[in-house]
Design a protein around this nucleic acid. Structure first.
Lengths: 133, 133
DNA sequence: AGAGATTTGTACGTATGTATG
DNA sequence: TCATACATACGTACAAATCTC
């Protein structure tokens, strides 16, 4: 399943494999991934490489880590809609650490930035909020 | 500047320090960061810790890495606006690796997902596109 | 063209700390 | 109390791409 002689880095191969299990539903939202040690043994990798793979999935917003409980497939949050009025615009970017703390934004989750016509600005966690009209 | 005995991890302290230099303008968009080896020597850290710090800044979309040229402060792209029509909504999330390749999305940059009233879906790089009405 | 230096990427190992169950 | 599991931090080594001389 994982080929150390491949051009593709082994930690990327492991990430591909886990990502596939998540998107296919084999690992459903809320399900726990095997521990780092378990994955390392199962695929004959170092724990370092396993951690690199999981870090990749974290940055993609696919999993959350609750040390030292384990690593879990992220559950999709119920979504509210924020209404854009005439002249408003909205964009998205990754939050600063301060914004992540303040809005309780998980890893790998962007912030939606709403620019109101009056010049004011609002921030929302992109996994719980969408914009509409 | 960096306190190994602090509660805050040294790689987070280094990330804080570099983030500060970026947001203050000391390191302007397009400027190159010191090499990993340079930072490690300058602050008395291992290259591992320096790489962790830079990985953090990458995930925040603050810097881009062009191996082996170096690490650079991300430049802000010109922004176009996509218009939301009645019944449309939009949200944001991190792109899949396939989407990143296809839309040429840099690291630490979300995708804007526009859901049209007719059920169709459009994807845009969040650093170049915003939505409006 | 070629050689060497530089820089990031990958992969391994070890050790210790901290929080959970 | 003890085992488990993730976080931090150090070290080494080699590969690959770019740049310079």
């Amino acid at each position: 399943m994982i080929d150390p002689s491949s051009d593709r880095a082994v930690f990327r191969q492991l990430a591909d494999l886990l990502r596939g299990r998540i998107t296919s539903g084999d690992l459903a939202p809320g399900a726990s991934l095997p521990s780092e040690l378990r994955l390392a043994q199962e695929y004959g990798l170092s724990r370092t490489s396993v951690r690199q793979a999981i870090a990749l999935l974290r940055s993609e917003g696919l999993v959350i880590v609750q040390p030292p409980r384990g690593t879990f497939v992220r559950t999709t949050e119920p979504t509210e809609t924020v209404t854009l009025l005439k002249g408003d615009t909205a964009s998205a970017r990754m939050p600063t650490p301060a914004e992540r703390r303040e809005l309780e934004i998980g890893e790998g989750v962007p912030v939606l930035v709403v620019f109101r016509a009056d010049g004011s600005r609002e921030l929302y966690p992109a996994d719980r909020i969408r914009v509409g009209r």
